[in-house]
């Protein structure tokens, strides 16, 4: 899921060759999405609608880059995602 350089597959123009992310966005969160495996039906709607692409197709959250917007929790029909206070995870 993380950004990987794709040197063989892209034309040699402007792409930053190291392709790494220097700063993370996890610190922006005041709430974090927590997935209840038992309720998850693997419909992948959360993965699809996350603006940051921080839920993998296997439905695990990348907390280094998730901004805690809550879109995933709202889109999840079975209610498998809860937004929890970030401070409790510090």
């Amino acid at each position: 899921m993380r950004l990987k350089p794709l040197p063989d597959t892209i034309p040699d123009c402007t792409a930053f060759e190291a392709g790494y992310l220097v700063t993370q966005n996890g610190g922006w969160r005041s709430e974090r999405p927590v997935i209840d495996e038992a309720k998850c039906v693997k419909c992948r709607q959360c993965y699809l609608y996350c603006p940051d692409g921080t839920i993998s197709q296997e439905i695990s959250v990348d907390y280094d880059f998730c901004k805690g917007c809550g879109i995933c929790a709202k889109i999840c029909k079975p209610g498998a995602i809860a937004m929890r206070r970030e401070a409790d995870y510090a």
């Binding site: 993380r2 950004l3 940051d52 993998s56 880059f65 809550g70």
Partner: peptide, 17 residues
């Protein structure tokens, strides 16, 4: 499954991103 726009600094919940 690959992400081509990842780690961007858009506001949380940004529709454009």
């Amino acid at each position: 499954s690959r992400e081509f726009f990842f780690g961007h600094k858009a506001c949380a919940g940004c529709g454009g991103s």
